[in-house]
Design a protein around this nucleic acid. Structure first.
Length: 863
RNA sequence: GGAAGCUUAGCUCAGCUGGGAGAGCAACCGCCUUACAAGCGGUAGGUCGUAGGUUCGAGCCCUACAGUUUCCACCA
């Protein structure tokens, strides 16, 4: 092993990754007899390269997979990417525009080619990033939502649903994006606060008896008005219900109707009803059988229904309409008004509600098993509070609009007979109409919502609808890891489609994590420019450091903050591990390791074994709860505090003594290092594997750490006694260090300290770690009482007053503790109601402190 | 408008079914001590958002309020 080198991960991380890949270490065996553990990777969109949020999400998954692999599970981490139809199309259209052309100009088949180039470019790029992060997904099984297996699943699912009557075509009011020129689902609309105006417009009575005033934020839609509504309980307007109005700027007449939807207290209490362009008006329109007049065309201009305003862009139209109203004296006033405006999630354009003909999935029945499975606990959502979101979403679900008027994605497999109009769902162009015998068909021009294919992801990737061994072995998958932002949008869809298609939940646990935010807690976004490229960080500090930084402070369901400091701290930790392993390797040269389970160990050795046993158990518990952040913290403090700060230092006297004691210490060091590497491997796979590969002592036959067997919890009872003794030694060391430092004795000065006789056998440990010389003659000086007894610092102490002051400080501290303890013990309620164990512990504490106090008091009196 | 989360040291966050307030970073003091100066040892710093309540005992449970974040619904 090249132990001279310092920790420089970028030099060999690639080499380690290749070692794994060349050993086929990531591949899952569907024929394995081992218990299965499987995760499907939430497919990143191929719209751009992966960002730091992906890195965190995926690192979490890699940790779980690697952990399970080390515990004897057959692990499948199924990777892939998503074509993200709407988002990708937006980028492609933009790209074409820059090149001076349009998708219509190049045609559908050419457009497809360009789309595939795009998919491949970003798909590869994401793959490279993920490999660089060390992810142990089974890349040979890499899937893409537009590839053959996925397309096959999409066709099968669609045709099944269609033939069952669960997919239908209907005219509905839907969200229309005038930029994407497509309908989008409710989930894809984001609402934003915007400052606008409220126009108060006069609508004259047809009989010439005056006018009423309606308030609106959208005057340009008045051409679509087919009524004005008031609340039936509104006393002001009871007598006008049924009267007729002249719709301004037109020669149409519209009625005043009554509908409880109208809020008496808002605006003027009179609402213009535009059923074609407002969801609420649409409902009112349906209730009152109103005509639905479309005044906005699909490209965001006023339609012919707008008469002389036909063809104007909406913003322009609004200006012109307001102008015209004003000229005719029909504008009462304009008020500033803040309201929420629906925006397209992908391109940020204001959404126009519009009546269009679309394809829908009937949801009512479909979602029932998805609700049931969580209620029964067969699918657990962590943390549990997110169940509430999940239920609310499914219980209020509307039929799912699955058609999109774009070109990117799976084309809807619906064919219309040119002759008779007969509609069939098929895997390809039908050859003969079963109704009229016609031979010519036209395929529906629309494509499917991206989520249709991602909803099938957990089983389409495993080969469904074929009955594959993979499905048998790995479905349902073990866990889904995802952010709360897409729990409802995506996870719910997978669950009900899982039941519909495969008949079982797609995963047994859903782990919900938060967002990675920047140092100041802001969302990372392009516009803020605060995003972080994982590869930049890796090139400076290595992939392991980045992984640690992302996971360290992670707590289930909570957002985390990313900062450079965290990466640097993480790199520091790994550096520590590196140096510890270097130390161990150095002293392991030529040492024959012994079986520490049978060898006679020193007290400090047993102390470490006790601690290590406890650590393994705690880590297991935390992994069982999917609390990897806490597990990591446990390992951290063991490595830094117990192993490096104490045990390695404890081992030095034994090592320098040589012979049998060195052999024992080195054996324990290697045993612990082996365990530490295996515990840390899921978090920092590269460096742990590297150390393992280069350690002759623990891996003489050059096996892979990632495929090794992790240590399991063992009984620690036999180590307890030595553990307690060593804890007392550590207590003495800590007290002596403080005594030195607070008396301004430099670290490199070794003062004489009068020690109690029972500390003699630990003299080398205490002397070395505390930086003192132990002597055993009585002498005057500053006293500190430890669990091992009374220590007296002799040197540099002349002043009696100083000694007394020092003693009094300690006495005060102890007295306070004693007062607190006895206060509790004198409390009848505490004695009566607190658990006996606690009462006993408190009594013991009191006794211990009282004897310490007595020693200090005696010393003070003797001065 | 409805719902949920968060509020603990200067900063980032732990704190499990209530039982003597924790870590890391930053600060300060002292050290190149033979794995590690990307280091070691030590010190200081908190009325646990506010106000009530339950309890022998509250950072933890209950109620109200404040600040903050997010989700859902969207009234012209």
């Amino acid at each position: 092993m090249n132990t001279k080198k310092s920790y420089n991960p970028t030099e060999w991380e690639d080499e380690i990754y290749n070692l794994w890949q060349n050993s086929n270490a990531f591949s899952a065996d569907e024929n394995s007899k081992k218990p299965a553990f499987s995760i499907i990777m939430p497919p990143p969109n191929v719209t751009s390269q992966a960002h730091i949020g992906h890195a965190m999400d995926m690192t979490y998954q890699d940790i779980l997979v690697r952990y399970k692999r080390l515990r004897g599970f057959e692990c499948l981490w199924q990777p892939g990417t998503d074509h993200a139809a709407l988002a990708t199309e937006a980028k492609l259209v933009e790209k074409l525009k820059k090149e001076g052309t349009t998708k219509e100009q190049i045609g559908r088949s050419e457009f497809d080619k360009i789309a595939w180039d795009w998919y491949n470019y970003y798909g590869d790029r994401i793959l490279q990033q993920f490999k660089r992060l060390g992810f142990s997904a089974d890349w040979n099984r890499y899937k893409f939502t537009m590839d053959e297996t996925s397309t096959n699943a999409v066709l099968t699912a669609f045709i099944n649903l269609y033939n069952k009557g669960l997919i239908y075509r209907g005219k509905r009011q839907t969200n229309w994006c005038v930029k994407c020129k497509s309908v989008i689902s409710d989930d894809e609309v984001n609402y934003e606060d915007e400052m606008g105006s409220m126009w108060h417009i006069k609508y004259p009575y047809s009989d010439g008896s005056g006018y009423i005033i309606v308030a609106t934020t959208r005057p340009e839609t008045l051409f679509g008005d087919t009524a004005v509504a008031v609340n039936p309980d509104d006393d002001r307007y009871k007598n006008v219900i049924g009267k007729t109005l002249n719709l301004p700027l037109t020669n149409r007449k519209i009625p005043i109707i009554a509908d409880s939807y109208v809020d008496k207290t808002f605006g003027t209490g009179m609402v213009k009803i535009t059923p074609a362009h407002d969801p609420n008006d649409y409902e009112v329109g349906k209730r009152h059988n109103l005509e639905m007049i479309s005044v906005i065309s699909k490209d965001g201009k006023l339609s012919e229904a707008a008469g002389e305003f036909f063809g104007l862009e909406l913003a322009e139209a609004r200006k012109k309409v307001v102008e015209a109203l004003e000229n005719q004296g029909l504008l009462e006033k304009i008020e500033p008004h803040k309201h929420n405006v629906g925006k397209c999630e992908r391109c940020h354009t204001t959404i126009e509600p519009m009546i269009t003909e679309q394809w829908f999935v009937k949801m009512q029945e479909l979602v029932k098993p998805a609700i049931e499975v969580v209620k029964k606990g067969d699918l657990q959502i962590h943390p549990k509070r997110f169940e509430k979101n999940y239920f609310r979403w499914l219980e209020n679900i509307q039929d799912w609009c699955i058609s999109r008027q774009i070109w990117t994605g799976h084309r809807i497999p619906i064919y219309y007979c040119d002759n008779c109009g007969n509609t069939v769902a098929d895997r390809g162009m039908p050859t003969k109409c079963n109704k009229c015998g016609g031979h010519k068909f036209t395929q529906d021009p629309d494509v499917l919502d991206t989520w249709f294919s991602s909803a099938l992801w957990p089983f389409s990737t495993l080969g469904w609808p074929n009955k594959t061994k993979e499905l048998d072995k790995f479905y349902p998958t073990s866990v889904l890891v995802t952010g709360f932002d897409i729990l409802t949008q995506w996870a719910t869809k997978m669950v009900y489609m899982g039941f519909e298609c495969v008949g079982a939940t797609p995963f047994k646990h859903a782990l919900i994590h938060g967002l990675v935010r920047d140092e100041q807690g802001r969302k990372m976004s392009k516009s803020l420019g605060n995003g972080v490229d994982p590869l930049d960080v890796i090139s400076k500090h290595g992939a392991d450091a980045l992984r640690l930084a992302l996971i360290k402070d992670m707590s289930m369901g909570m957002d985390t903050r990313y900062s450079n400091t965290k990466v640097e701290t993480s790199a520091g930790f790994i550096n520590k591990l590196w140096n510890a392993s270097k130390f161990i390797a150095m002293h392991s040269e030529g040492v024959q390791l012994i079986d520490i389970n049978v060898a006679k160990l020193a007290a400090a050795d047993n102390w470490l074994m006790y601690k290590l046993g406890g650590l393994i158990k705690t880590v297991e518990t935390n992994f069982d709860n999917f609390d990897v952040g806490v597990a990591l913290t446990n390992i951290y403090s063991f490595v830094l505090d117990d192993f490096c700060d104490y045990y390695i230092e404890f081992s030095k006297p034994s090592i320098f003594a040589g012979g049998k004691s060195k052999q024992t210490a080195v054996s324990v060091l290697n045993f612990a290092l082996d365990a530490i590497l295996k515990l840390l491997h899921p978090f920092i796979p590269f460096v742990t594997e590297y150390i393992y590969q280069n350690s002759n002592a623990i891996n003489n036959d050059k096996k892979l750490l990632m495929l090794a067997n992790a240590p399991t919890a063992y009984n620690v009872d036999k180590y307890l006694e030595d553990y307690n003794i060593t804890e007392d030694v550590i207590d003495a060391i800590k007290n002596l260090r403080t005594l030195k430092a607070t008396n301004n004795i430099a670290t490199n000065v070794k003062p004489n300290v009068v020690a109690p006789q029972n500390s003699k056998q630990y003299e080398d440990l205490i002397g070395k770690l505390a930086g003192v010389n132990l002597v055993y003659d009585d002498a005057d000086g500053k006293v500190v009482v430890t669990k091992l007894g009374k220590f007296t610092l002799v040197e540099q102490v002349i002043d009696k007053a100083e000694q007394q002051k020092h003693l009094k400080e300690q006495i005060d501290k102890l007295s306070f503790e004693i007062k607190r303890s006895s206060g509790m013990l004198n409390n009848a309620g505490f004695i009566a109601k607190a658990p006996a164990k606690l009462v006993e512990a408190e009594k013991a504490k009191l006794k211990d402190n009282e004897s310490k106090l007595a020693e200090l008091q005696a010393k003070l009196n003797s001065l």
